[in-house]
Simulated scan of single mutants.
Amino acid sequence: MNFRQGSYGDVEQLRLLGLASWKQFQSDLTPDNWQKLFNNLNHTEMYAELLTQSHCIVCENAVGAIIGMAFLVPRGNPTDIFQADWSYLRYVTVHPDFSGLGIGRQLTEKCIEIAKRNKEHTVALHTSEMMHKARHIYESLGFTILREIEPRQGKKYWLYTLAIA
């Protein structure tokens, strides 16, 4: 496996990875909520915008296919969930065929390393009740629940933060 910075040339592979990875949650969602999530994941513009505002790390397999991705958005990009002085993780995603190999953990660790180099003070993320493996990884790396946030796609979501020393 090879980890590298993602680029605009990766947008189509990122889109396909998002669709393949999140499909595993289709049965956890109502048809309407799945369609909303699918529509979001299926837009190349969403990945292109993330590449513009964040540091993207991808993981490639032996033949160069992208099997994992994560985006670290730097402070100064507030949302309705994330404060202006926080950096935050988006779409930490691993293809289901490569689940259990530690890729999600390594992607998250690499984003934390970048946040430290960039002198960020806080890394935040949000995740849901259906993301058991992801929550375990985040908590084992020191992220703690700050609060429950508004449900998304009909599921409970929590806001996690990690203080960067």
Rank of each mutant, 00 (worst) to 15 (best):
R135C: 08
Q35T: 06
H126T: 13
L51I: 10
T44N: 07
E45N: 13
Q106H: 07
R105G: 05
G142M: 00
E49A: 08
M46S: 14
N42Q: 04
S140Q: 14
H95A: 08
V123F: 06
K36N: 04
Q83H: 14
E120K: 09
I114Y: 08
E45Y: 07
T44K: 10
D85H: 14
Q53L: 15
I67P: 11
S140R: 10
H121N: 15
S54M: 04
F71P: 05
N33C: 08
L50I: 01
T127A: 07
V94N: 00
I67S: 09
H132D: 09
H136N: 12
R105S: 09
G64W: 03
Q53Y: 13
T93N: 02
G64Y: 10
V92D: 07
I66V: 12
E45D: 14
R105C: 01
K116I: 14
H43M: 09
Q53R: 15
F98R: 04
H136A: 12
F38T: 01
S54N: 06
A48L: 03
E45V: 02
F143I: 06
N77G: 05
I67V: 12
Q106E: 15
E139M: 15
T122Y: 10
T122V: 15
Q53W: 11
Q35G: 00
Y138I: 00
D85L: 01
K119W: 04
G64S: 01
F98A: 04
T93H: 05
N40M: 11
R105L: 05
T79G: 11
G100N: 04
E45Q: 15
T122K: 13
M69E: 11
E45G: 11
I103V: 06
G104L: 00
A48D: 06
R75C: 13
S128G: 10
M69S: 10
Y138G: 00
L125E: 14
M130R: 12
T108V: 01
V73A: 09
K119P: 01
L72G: 04
M69L: 08
F71W: 06
N42I: 01
S99A: 14
H43N: 15
I103D: 05
P74N: 04
V123H: 08
E45L: 02
K119L: 13
A70V: 12
Y138W: 04
E139P: 07
F98H: 14
N42T: 00
G102R: 05
W86S: 10
H55L: 07
L50G: 00
I66Y: 02
K110H: 12
P78T: 04
H43Y: 03
N77R: 08
E49H: 14
H121K: 15
A134C: 02
H126E: 15
E49D: 14
C56D: 05
T122L: 12
K110F: 03
G68K: 08
V73Q: 05
V73C: 11
K116F: 09
K133D: 13
N33F: 04
Q106V: 07
N118T: 13
L141R: 03
F38K: 10
K116L: 14
S99D: 09
Y88N: 09
V58M: 05
R135V: 07
Y138A: 00
I114N: 06
Y47E: 02
I114K: 12
V123L: 09
V123D: 12
E129M: 08
Q106A: 06
I67K: 08
S99Q: 13
A84Q: 14
T108K: 02
V94D: 00
S54H: 06
L89Y: 00
L101S: 10
L72I: 05
